[in-house]
Nucleic acid binder design. Structure first.
Lengths: 106, 106
DNA sequence: TGGCTAATTGGCAATTTAGCCAAATAGATA
DNA sequence: TATCTATTTGGCTAAATTGCCAATTAGCCA
């Protein structure tokens, strides 16, 4: 694999990787229902504010969410709702695995 | 976030995370064109055979690919072709980022 | 059996990531 | 201005990931 090909796949993987964490996946799911400020998300996640902020930064740097400061709050929202398609596919992968497990058990 | 919710998102994230690596994304893309044996993939990737084998194991454990031994070769193929939908979404995220960058520059 | 090829596994060092606390920044408001 | 709230950043440690080499496993064939 040459350098430019590697770079192409690495940059795409970076975006997917940003979703590859339980907390960040939860954040994306929550944001699919509308914009939320960091303090709301922190409440829902139940981790340190700084931890949530850093997860949001990862999603922002990947281009998945955008932030907007209003007053002294920062509101996050999905910039590319197509990421929600990931959920359906993931369910289907899990379904396939579960089905296969049952078949193997027979 | 309670334990079972966390578990739900973690298990889903694990599948996405498996795709979140340049080499593994390349492998998935290549397998979308049909089954390949490890040695073919190793040739294409250009890394150590053991490295490629481990990446394939990550994809297999996530339920994204399946393996089939024939003779002394192991053939891998996509178990859930829906993962290819990821590519279109990733392109769209990159497109949005690029467009925004151009707008900001103006 | 012995040797060959294909693939996986074990083990290691280097790098990256995650999550917490403390400190800094920024807007609102008294 | 002083203070309060919301958020980000810096710094640290623990844990996970990556990729290579070496060793092992497994099938094929002479």
């Amino acid at each position: 694999m040459d350098d430019s090909t590697r770079q192409k796949y690495d940059s795409r993987a970076r975006i997917i990787k940003a979703m590859g964490h339980g907390t960040r996946l939860f954040l994306v799911d929550e944001l699919s229902r509308g914009e939320r400020c960091v303090c709301e998300l922190q409440e829902l996640v139940g981790a340190d504010m700084s931890t949530v902020s850093k997860h949001l930064a990862v999603l922002r740097e990947a281009g998945i969410v955008k932030d907007e400061k209003r007053g002294n709050q920062v509101f996050y929202s999905l910039r590319c709702p197509c990421v929600l398609n990931f959920f359906a596919c993931v369910e289907s992968v899990m379904q396939t695995s579960a089905t296969q497990a049952v078949e193997l058990a027979r």
